[in-house]
Simulated scan of single mutants.
Amino acid sequence: MATSKLQALWNHPAGPKTIHFWAPTFKWGISIANAADFAKPPEQISYPHQTVVAVSGVIWSRYSTVIIPRNLNLLSVNLSMAGTGFYQLSRKIRHDYFSETEPVASKE
């Protein structure tokens, strides 16, 4: 049974013999790097960078639901990108607009 499932994956139109498999597989690096940045201080988070990651994740998630062959690897990596991007944006927004820290007074 495991052999037949492995053979079905191998011969799938979005299987490991095609770019439809390898492109989303390597794209996981973006999501993993973004998740590794969760420990980064919010001051170092970039609005433009995280907006692009989040929005492209949403756009390509939608695209991956309408293309043929159906590619769940593409859908999952893009949902992951959208999730990590929106989480990073929420960290940055909370820090910039809702933090309780007082501004440092300059000495003149």
Score class of each variant (00 low, 15 high):
residue 88 Q to F: 03
residue 57 G to F: 08
residue 70 R to C: 01
residue 76 S to E: 00
residue 28 W to Q: 08
residue 88 Q to I: 06
residue 3 T to L: 13
residue 83 G to A: 13
residue 53 V to S: 04
residue 24 P to W: 06
residue 94 R to N: 05
residue 79 L to G: 01
residue 100 E to K: 14
residue 21 F to G: 00
residue 9 L to Y: 08
residue 20 H to Y: 11
residue 22 W to K: 10
residue 13 P to R: 00
residue 66 V to Q: 04
residue 34 N to P: 02
residue 75 L to W: 09
residue 17 K to T: 09
residue 51 T to E: 09
residue 36 A to Y: 04
residue 24 P to V: 04
residue 1 M to T: 14
residue 4 S to G: 04
residue 96 D to Q: 06
residue 39 A to H: 11
residue 61 S to K: 10
residue 59 I to D: 04
residue 19 I to V: 07
residue 13 P to N: 01
residue 92 K to N: 05
residue 67 I to V: 08
residue 10 W to I: 06
residue 88 Q to T: 12
residue 20 H to P: 00
residue 38 F to Q: 10
residue 103 P to N: 11
residue 31 S to Q: 03
residue 63 Y to W: 13
residue 47 Y to I: 11
residue 61 S to N: 12
residue 24 P to M: 10
residue 43 E to M: 08
residue 56 S to Q: 08
residue 37 D to W: 05
residue 29 G to A: 14
residue 17 K to V: 02
residue 101 T to A: 15
residue 71 N to A: 02
residue 50 Q to D: 09
residue 15 G to R: 05
residue 67 I to D: 01
residue 16 P to R: 08
residue 70 R to P: 03
residue 10 W to H: 08
residue 15 G to M: 07
residue 72 L to V: 06
residue 2 A to Q: 11
residue 102 E to R: 15
residue 84 T to I: 07
residue 50 Q to M: 14
residue 51 T to H: 07
residue 94 R to A: 05
residue 21 F to Y: 09
residue 46 S to Y: 06
residue 55 V to Y: 02
residue 18 T to A: 02
residue 97 Y to D: 00
residue 42 P to H: 11
residue 59 I to Q: 07
residue 28 W to R: 04
residue 6 L to E: 07
residue 70 R to T: 03
residue 35 A to D: 02
residue 36 A to C: 05
residue 74 L to F: 12
residue 38 F to V: 14
residue 108 E to R: 07
residue 55 V to E: 01
residue 87 Y to N: 03
residue 38 F to L: 15
residue 4 S to A: 14
residue 85 G to A: 04
residue 100 E to G: 11
residue 71 N to T: 01
residue 105 A to N: 13
residue 77 V to D: 00
residue 20 H to K: 04
residue 31 S to T: 15
residue 98 F to S: 05
residue 40 K to Y: 03
residue 65 T to S: 15
residue 40 K to H: 15
residue 52 V to S: 15
residue 38 F to M: 13
residue 73 N to M: 07
residue 30 I to M: 14
residue 25 T to H: 00
residue 80 S to M: 05
residue 43 E to H: 08
residue 7 Q to F: 10
residue 81 M to N: 10
residue 105 A to V: 14
residue 98 F to C: 06
residue 100 E to R: 13
residue 84 T to Y: 04
residue 3 T to H: 15
residue 68 I to W: 04
residue 84 T to P: 00
residue 35 A to P: 01
residue 31 S to N: 10
residue 5 K to P: 06
residue 88 Q to L: 13
residue 106 S to G: 08
residue 17 K to A: 08
residue 11 N to R: 08
residue 99 S to W: 09
residue 51 T to N: 09
residue 68 I to A: 02
residue 59 I to M: 13
residue 95 H to T: 04
residue 34 N to V: 09
